[in-house]
Design a protein around this nucleic acid. Structure first.
Lengths: 159, 159
DNA sequence: GTGCGTCACTTGAACGCTCAACCACGGCCT
DNA sequence: AGGCCGTGGTTGAGCGTTCAAGTGACGCAC
């Protein structure tokens, strides 16, 4: 057992900053979405991912991948959103094991209503702090970290 | 009400990457800490912040600031860690309103035991994916974002 | 075609976090 | 001295997340 390599100054700065962002940024965006429409950032994201999918539906596992969440977490949230009439579960025709989550019209409507405020918040709390160059750097660096955590994460898929 | 400015390609990449990191990185580190010692990342951080403070104690509000958490969340966690004998609450001599959290010897011991594995995990899941240059860039960009979210956040303090 | 491992998902219980209400103290102001 | 507001902290209820266990369905081996 050798002595661990402790963090140097920049490593510590990067790590502490990421840790803080990690707790403060979702809190800020959750807050905006919750006051605008009783929706969490995660709820919003689930619906946003469905809205961008062809036919506005996705298998649960694919949706879980696109929200970086566990199937269990997603399942609970989908039941919640289903009760609000925003989503619908349907069996998959070809494979009886898979369930697909469909974005209902009501869900699409709330998403459309929420989107401008949410994008504004993302800019206000995050992007507006950065230059164009920063954003490009962050995209590059961020994707490296994502690749390290999950080497075939969906955001890294080509095309 | 004007049309919102939607995200361009780099903005979207940066935002999606950050969102994914945000859920996957804490999960990975939580996991390591939990299997190594039934401790969450937040628990670890609370103790780490105390261990670095002079005298190994801090007022609750200062500790909340250094962990970017609400006083309420911190209070709950401190009671939990206190029950394990790792922390101790004491009244502040000068001001009866403030409570100070002290890191007990047992807490320091578990921290020392956990630290090498934790630092290794931080490297493995995060820093090792990046070049020196990336780390410096990320530190700079990260601190900009932190400043935007909380302009007198403790990590930005000079001295 | 029967068995068996895997896959896709769901569920319930335990745990953690958030939010709002609350309390006590300190620092004012008059 | 009394009244007031702001500060520092705690608590309990409600909700969300995690974890482990369970249910079918698919597909491959033989």
């Amino acid at each position: 057992m050798t002595e661990p390599r402790w963090l140097n100054a920049d490593e510590r700065r990067a790590w502490l900053a990421l840790l803080s962002i990690n707790t403060m940024l979702p809190a800020a965006l959750d807050n905006q979405l919750h006051t605008a429409g009783k929706v969490s950032l995660f709820d919003y994201n689930v619906m946003a991912m469905l809205s961008e999918a062809e036919g506005r539906f996705l298998p649960m596992s694919e949706l879980a991948a696109r929200t970086s969440s566990s199937l269990s977490r997603l399942s609970h949230v989908v039941t919640k959103l289903e009760k609000r009439g925003w989503l619908e579960r349907r069996p998959h025709p070809g494979d009886a094991r898979v369930t697909t989550a469909h974005l209902a019209d009501a869900g699409m409507a709330t998403l459309v209503a929420l989107a401008p405020g949410h994008v504004e918040a993302v800019r206000a709390k995050f992007l507006d702090a950065l230059t164009e160059r920063d954003v490009a750097d962050l995209a590059r660096i961020g994707e490296k970290i994502v690749a390290r955590l999950d080497d075939d994460h969906w955001i890294l898929r080509e095309n």
